[in-house]
Amino acid sequence: MTDLFATESKLQPAEMRIAKFGLGAVVRHRVYPFRGVVFDVDPVFDNTEEWWLAIPEEVRPRKDQPFYHLLAENAESEYVAYVSEQNLVPDTSGEALRHAGIPDVFDLDEDGAYRLRSAHAN
Rank of each mutant, 00 (worst) to 15 (best):
5 F>S: 01
24 G>S: 15
60 R>E: 13
121 A>C: 15
102 I>N: 02
39 F>I: 03
25 A>N: 12
42 D>K: 13
24 G>W: 14
85 E>H: 10
45 F>M: 13
110 E>D: 15
49 E>R: 08
22 G>S: 15
54 A>D: 11
2 T>P: 15
93 S>I: 09
63 K>R: 15
89 V>I: 15
33 P>M: 10
14 A>F: 15
30 R>W: 06
58 E>I: 15
6 A>T: 11
37 V>K: 10
18 I>R: 09
29 H>I: 06
68 Y>V: 03
71 L>M: 11
119 A>F: 10
25 A>H: 10
42 D>C: 11
39 F>R: 06
40 D>M: 11
49 E>K: 11
29 H>F: 07
36 G>A: 03
48 T>F: 02
20 K>T: 14
108 L>W: 04
101 G>S: 13
28 R>H: 07
103 P>G: 00
111 D>Y: 12
47 N>Y: 07
31 V>H: 07
64 D>L: 04
65 Q>S: 06
122 N>P: 15
49 E>T: 11
1 M>G: 13
116 L>W: 05
55 I>K: 00
29 H>V: 05
28 R>Y: 05
45 F>E: 12
61 P>Q: 09
30 R>Y: 05
115 R>I: 14
97 L>E: 09
81 A>W: 11
29 H>L: 12
88 L>T: 01
85 E>G: 04
96 A>P: 09
89 V>Q: 11
23 L>F: 13
78 E>Y: 04
101 G>M: 13
19 A>R: 14
30 R>S: 03
88 L>Y: 00
